[in-house]
Design a protein around this nucleic acid. Structure first.
Lengths: 411, 411
DNA sequence: CCCGCTTTGCCCGACTTTCGAACAAAGCCT
DNA sequence: AGGCTTTGTTCGAAAGTCGGGCAAAGCGGG
């Protein structure tokens, strides 16, 4: 197999890189600044091909509208030192809300994505949307007041992750199996009425995947986030964007059939991944063998204590997860798989099994650069990811341009 | 489970629809016209929010540069009848090339995507790129000359589908298992030197998926194209765009493990989908039972003849495919699954098995609007899809804008 | 220390694009 | 035939963009 590596010049074929597409509008200039791609006026001009005067114009608009701050000088490159521009974090605030089956975490972020404060409370999602969201509202108001200490912050947008499928365009859960009473509940309207801002709602694993991709694995465009807890789910980032599928139920891998074992599953089928490797199933199996295990946390405890039975069971679960994952790797060809959820606390044991199965069965081309790693963000992934979702909405070029034209000074 | 269907007004929450974003540049105006979204000047003005005079300006530019034709009047809506605009097909030509393991199909399309002519020839891909592409070049020149009869046509771009993973940005195959000698061969440069136009190269199933989505299932954004032939592969359209994955090997589902059976596979593992349900494997199994079957076509023949053994085998293969597919449906949540490839000729038998397995195992939310259907495009899907890839490149706003500014009259 | 060099950022006149309003065109309706 | 409606064009005004000139600000060599 001879490799052709030379790059003969393309005679009269237009170059594929249009060299300078983005940045045609103030909002896109802001995107360049906030993403760190170009942080001085001169850099922006070079990057976009716009005249220096035009760039100054746009940057001025962004500054007077409170989107950008001008830091003091930067290191000179031989001539006059450029003035560094940065997203103005002061003044704006974003909420990131992670609602789980039995807990709820509310985070406050600045507009650059830094988590300023977070609070977790136990809560039962089955109490219904009014009760749960009411609690979120109160927590959020508390956090906002507390944060006011360091300069007032105006809430700009809210991101919400919920444990079930969501129709993203309307922000409404659709037939969520573990959220009784939430079907079609208009979450964005709930927050819109109370805070006067937009709320973006998505599946919790999706926003966790987003958090990991944006914050910890920004060099990878295609990422899967495997959440192994009581149940098993998967968040998908394809080409840097969340893949939600037709009904918003993409990533629902808990009931994929795996292996030979025919464990019955609560879904009515048997042999489901969740029935074999989910935290609830593992705990049940350990109980059968006389161990004390109620939920995922007990499994973590037992493994940490070095209980052989538990370690073996978890490793086996890892293999089951890995077997399913190997298929998904072949199909989706991600660069990174992040493993999170309660059981990721013992990722040494879990990942060993996962890697074993994936590298045994997957296409070598797909695996030879594949990384399978534990979550880097950890317990705040949901809140941060939801916040990122909201930030990217609030800072999208379209939104920013609108803010500039309907000249109400931001902040 | 109570359903909340009311839509209370969003107090002071900005509407999610920016109402009039697209169309800021001549290229985007052309996109509106060619996609049929807005086909008169007045419609474009309404759709984009631009002044009518601006729209006229842009349309004039598109007309003088040969991108748009002005048809005669359209039905009046009470006032002066609008003049209908349409993409100028006359003059432009696009090539769509579908290279298989043992055949090659070259198609000539006009810029609206209509197939003008096509030719298929047998050929062995293992003869290497120079030989194969040389043949494609000759065929394409023949087709271009023949098409010249009805007005001269200038070739604008070439799309190519090949049976292996491709690094799309460079158009080079990467470690393709059934294309010896093609590793890293610079296909776009080959055509660039000979025709002076850009060539876009992609995996063959990807372009087939694209063809089905754009031409036959344009109401669905998420589509899988399952090709069941000698081998088994899958093309992925996510959110209207081809998903290629990190190494361009996404959709390589032939070696996902399925079921209990441990058939050895040429990949070294056992239990692979392809080893159980691929055309080659089915033929081998039928041969074992004394039937005469060399390849996929013989299976089709036997099933058509009503051979019970063959029908049963195909149906079983369908179930195996369906079992894998059920997992992918849960994971990806497509709206449509299209089944093509040689064995799709007997889709009654094959699809029965596929549907049976999918509907048994997949998440009801994901399946209740899922369509599993035979290919509608058929044998030209590869050539047409490759052509569409090239057309969408040539008509992309960026390309069109460049053509307008570097004022060389198109056509 | 001063002066030329380099790079950055702003100012200003020339040019291009876009807008909005007025007007012509073309069919429908009474 | 004349008013009405919708479409498309013409034209002057407004806005945005460009590019050159110029001041600002640091570096480095004599």
């Amino acid at each position: 197999m001879n490799a052709h590596t030379s790059s003969p010049p393309l005679s009269s074929v237009p170059s594929s890189a249009p060299s300078s597409l983005p940045g045609q509008t103030p909002g896109e200039v802001l995107a360049l600044i906030s993403s760190g791609v170009a942080v001085t006026r001169a850099e922006i001009a070079r990057r976009t091909g716009l005249a220096r005067s035009t760039v100054s114009h746009r940057v001025d608009a962004l500054i007077t509208h409170g989107f950008v701050d001008e830091d003091t000088g930067a290191p000179s490159t031989g001539g006059r030192p450029p003035r560094r521009l940065s997203l103005r974090t002061h003044g704006h605030a974003i909420a990131g809300v992670d609602i789980g089956a039995s807990h709820c975490r509310v985070g406050l972020l600045d507009i650059s994505g830094t988590l300023l404060a977070a609070r977790e409370d136990p809560l039962t999602i089955a109490d219904g949307p009014e009760a749960v969201l009411g609690h979120v509202e109160r927590t959020l108001r508390t956090l906002l007041e507390a944060a006011d200490g360091k300069g007032p912050r105006t809430l700009r947008a809210i991101g919400v992750g919920v444990p079930g499928p969501v129709e993203f365009s309307t922000g409404r859960p659709v037939d969520p199996p573990i959220m009784p009473g939430w079907h079609h509940f208009p979450i964005p309207e709930f927050f819109g009425e109370r805070f006067g801002v937009r709320a973006l709602v998505d599946n919790d694993v999706n926003v966790m995947a987003l958090a990991e991709q944006r914050r910890a694995f920004s060099d990878t465009l295609h990422l899967l986030y495997l959440k192994v807890g009581t149940g098993i789910g998967c968040g998908i980032v394809a080409d840097g964007r969340i893949h939600r599928g037709a009904q918003g139920s993409a990533g629902d891998i808990g009931h994929i059939r795996v292996g030979e074992r025919d464990e019955p599953c609560r879904c009515g089928n048997s042999g489901c991944l969740e029935a074999i490797a989910g935290g609830a199933a593992l705990a049940a199996r350990l109980r059968e063998r006389g161990l004390e295990a109620e939920g995922s946390l007990d499994i973590v405890r037992l493994v940490r204590e070095g209980n052989h039975e538990a370690v073996r069971t978890v490793r086996e679960a890892g293999r089951a997860v890995g077997e399913v994952l190997s298929g998904l790797v072949n199909f989706f060809n991600p660069e990174t798989v992040v493993v999170g959820g309660a059981l990721a606390a013992i990722h040494d044991q879990l990942l060993a099994g996962v890697r074993e199965a994936v590298y045994r069965r997957s296409n070598p081309l797909a695996t030879h650069v594949l990384r399978i790693e534990p979550s880097r963000i950890g317990e705040n992934a949901g809140a941060i990811g939801a916040g990122i979702l909201a930030i990217e909405h609030a800072l999208s070029p379209a939104q920013v341009d609108r803010a500039l034209t309907t000249d109400a000074t931001a902040v």
